[in-house]
Design a protein around this nucleic acid. Structure first.
Lengths: 271, 271
DNA sequence: GAGTGGTCTAGACCACAAG
DNA sequence: TTGTGGTCTAGACCACTCC
């Protein structure tokens, strides 16, 4: 009686396919409003729950976003920020996040809080510290255009920074400088960074902190800066998916195992 | 009469919170079965659709997986495969995917098909070719333990490989060798790889091809191999999220802009 | 107040898995 | 055959947004 389009294809899939086609074909532009659920009920002769299932389907694909009391809107999926491959090169007077966000033309804000803690065991492991060692821990929330887009937690060995000018990343003469010039000022010259990226759905806490609509994934990065074999800083970083592009450029040595070494992978526990 | 836990908290959220706690506390182990929807209805005195909403919530968080006719099961979220930072180093007689999957102790299978095509404009752009240039295009599906885990499409300029021993990546003397030794054999020595990673939800096509349960995100990578400034191969790669860890190790030059160059980011259109 | 999405009821039938 | 999740009905009330 309704569509009966194809046997075995649920009605809500049919409706979702129709809406998706209109989105990818550009008939429904980025930011535009979809038919209301009640309009879908009338047009397709289905119950509210079926119309809703169609919208849920598209939301799960990250194509649309629902706004209570307003409607359903086509999401913009264009990444806002490029994390460039030269993000760790010197000169590096501005921290990475600030450079990158300004490149995207967005107002930038950072909230942070530094405390002295006992390093959690996975962190002690990443920093090459003994169990129970102290570390300076800084928690960050980054906002772009007023919206939170990433959060991270950074640990530095207290044995390295305790009692120095850079004990707290955002105080003293190197306040707000990036990690590289901060350690440069201690004559600890960072020469490599190791990153492990995984893709997953956010925890409810992360979804709340990053104001992620349902169905939006995140990239979680475990990052460690080293000078030689010594780890000087490690971080757990969570990015709102679809807002960031991560760029990597890696040289490929002409002969086996030069310069970067052949240390194999690292075992990093991810957030 | 039911839980009445807190005002304003929807019942399905309360149920989802309870189930999530039992999962993260380990009371419900990886792979174990959750209460059936009907059991949840009885235990919480709610209708089926509410019990279902709770399960949908956890599925959207990637915590559980539904199997029709069987039940709801706690997903294992441990990544199966590490893509190591030395994955592009020489010697490189085995292709990357094979090395990495075997490292994970899984049987590996690759399906591929190579055709000569006119390079799509975004691909021509990435390869530095004129519009309408020909390219050799290979489509891959990779399976681990019988399950598809990633898919990719690779393009190489026909002007470079056409009529040579390596025109088709899986035929001839260098059949099934990795991209680096293949081009080595042509005296084209690849010296850098550029990768752009984004995180997003799969398209319905991708979800079907990779057999992804609803709510599982993917990593999409645009990858280009170069010898000097000349691009010799570019790929669009899609990984099932939570099955891969991407590892990167990058040297940080002691002085600005050495060795790797300071070419800035690249504009790569992502799949 | 009118319109929107969010939650919910109390059922029903279907498709699939397993004994 | 029984039990599971998947889809669906025809309503209802609530919370939020905008006028």
């Amino acid at each position: 009686m309704t569509g009966m389009v194809s046997p075995h294809e649920p009605m809500y899939i049919t409706i979702a396919n129709d809406l998706r086609k209109r989105i990818v074909d550009g008939l429904l532009a980025k930011g535009s409003k979809l038919p209301t659920e009640r309009e879908l009920c009338d047009q397709w002769k289905v119950s509210g729950i079926t119309a809703r299932a169609a919208v849920d389907q598209l939301r799960g694909e990250g194509l649309v976003e629902t706004r209570r009391g307003k409607g359903v809107y086509v999401r913009s999926t264009t990444p806002l920020v490029r994390l460039s491959p030269d993000r760790y090169f010197r000169p590096h007077t501005q921290p990475t996040w600030e450079l990158e966000s300004e490149r995207a033309g967005l107002q930038v804000e950072m909230r942070h809080e530094t405390t002295k803690v006992v390093a959690p065991s996975v962190i002690a492991d990443r920093l090459g510290l003994d169990e129970g060692s102290a570390a300076m821990c800084t928690e960050y929330v980054f906002l772009m255009g007023g919206e939170p887009t990433s959060m991270s937690t950074t640990w530095e060995p207290y044995a390295l920074v305790g009692g120095t000018d850079i004990e707290r990343p955002h105080e003293g003469p190197m306040a707000n400088a990036g990690v590289i010039p901060r350690f440069d000022s201690m004559h600890l010259y960072i020469d490599s960074v190791y990153e492990v990226v995984i893709v997953r759905m956010p925890t409810p806490d992360e979804a709340r902190a990053l104001k992620l609509p349902p169905g939006v994934p995140v990239a979680a990065i475990a990052q460690t800066f080293r000078t030689g074999d010594r780890a000087v800083q490690t971080s757990d970083i969570v990015f709102a998916g679809e807002r960031y592009e991560l760029h990597y450029r890696m040289p490929i040595p002409r002969v086996p195992s030069v310069s970067i070494g052949d240390l194999g992978h690292e075992d990093l526990t991810l957030p």
